[in-house]
Simulated assay, not measured.
Amino acid sequence: MPQSTQHATQSINEPVFDTRHFRQALAQFATGVTVITTRSATGEMTGLTATSFNSVSLQPPLVLWSLGSNGSTLPAFTDSTHYVINVLAADQAALATRFASRIPNRFEGVDFDLSETGQPILRGAIAWFECTNRSRYPEGDHVIFVGEVAHCAFSPKPPLLFHGGAFVSTTPILPA
């Protein structure tokens, strides 16, 4: 009989490292760079840069990402029924920087199309996933969003990566 596990709500032990050390250790893990976009019922568009994107399940098709609990865009994403995860291409570092900034209209001058549900899909992204906002889980200082993928598309181009606090690209080590 399978055993269930319980989720601990508090750490058992205090960490023996500080936040800066932890962040530097995390920076050694190269991640893809995404811009997650949504559009409110009133038509206001919101987007942010995130490197916390992961696949969860093939059946049903689920993905996840996280957003800081104090993020200014949190209400837009918690209130939205859908959002799009745009995976950026190697030549889109300026777009990643723009959506990571605090400028008021991040979409000004940005080329995008609208999905079937009216969500912004950034042109030039190497993949995009339009998701139903399935569930959210507050954990630590972030909220984890789980999205059920309704539509997706991709084009085989080099991805934009983030490693060691900088944008990088890929060079294959072995043939595919």
Rank of each mutant, 00 (worst) to 15 (best):
S4V: 15
T9S: 08
D18T: 12
R20Q: 10
R23M: 06
T31R: 02
T34L: 04
R39W: 01
G43T: 10
E44Q: 14
E44M: 09
E44V: 11
T46P: 03
G47E: 01
L48G: 11
T49P: 02
S52P: 07
S52A: 02
S52D: 01
S57L: 05
P60S: 13
P60A: 14
P60L: 14
V63Y: 02
V63D: 00
G68S: 13
G68L: 14
G71Y: 03
P75M: 04
P75V: 03
T78M: 08
D79F: 00
S80H: 01
Y83C: 02
Y83W: 08
V87W: 02
L88M: 14
Q92A: 05
Q92P: 03
A96C: 07
T97Q: 04
A100L: 13
R102N: 15
I103W: 11
G109F: 06
F112W: 09
D113Q: 14
L114Y: 14
S115L: 11
Q119W: 11
I121D: 13
W128N: 05
E130L: 08
R136S: 07
Y137A: 10
E139P: 06
E139T: 09
E139M: 08
H142K: 06
V143M: 06
V146A: 12
E148W: 08
V149C: 12
V149P: 10
A150H: 04
H151V: 14
A153D: 15
S155R: 15
L161G: 05
H163R: 06
G164H: 08
A166G: 10
A166C: 09
V168E: 03
P175N: 06
